[in-house]
Amino acid sequence: MSANVNHSLPLEYQTEQNRLNILGFWIFLGAEIVLFATLFAVYGVLGHRYAGGPTPSDIFKLNDVLIETLLLLTSSFTCGLAVFFMRQRDMKKMLVWFIITLLLGAGFLFMEIREFIHYVHEGATMQTSAFLSSFFVLLGTHGAHVTFGIIWAIMLVIQLLQRGLTPVTARKMFIISLYWHFLDVVWIFIFTFVYLKGMVA
């Protein structure tokens, strides 16, 4: 089956194997949505139990959060551009936009780690209150996904440089782009239901 190559389709969809891998990854993303839903549920239940510790409006700094949001949103956009150029079989432009995506992702991670260090210095640690425990678990899980995505992407860049653009590497590139967009989707909800919610109250 996988030997049947349909050249009328974009590279990443040309074989049956690739189509199944992409479908499988969408199903994995469905499971990821449920994983993050459980963490949002925990935060929704415990997010206002401060145990005498700091409240969201005490520690959140909107400017830093907005910079993180814009970095991740822009990286999602540049990742989309990378796939756009992949479909035009322009590997050079694809790699340039993909590496920009990685740098923006790294910038996001730098800002987030700085934010966490700042909180801990203010005495807002994971042990302080139920609010902060659920906050760090939700944000930490997202941050761990970004970290994993960056490592994954670096390995994929190495493979793309070695093997060029083939149906197999194109499929890998397409799948990591889905993963990366998904991380931004999760961040939209963190931004809204953790940070902005904390600023309203």
Binding site: G30, I33, F36, A37, F40, A41, G44
Partner: peptide, 14 residues
């Protein structure tokens, strides 16, 4: 379906 399950988990738990 994933969104439906997510809403049930979040809204239901809270």
């Amino acid at each position: 379906y994933a969104v439906f399950v997510a809403i049930v988990i979040v809204a239901g738990s809270i």
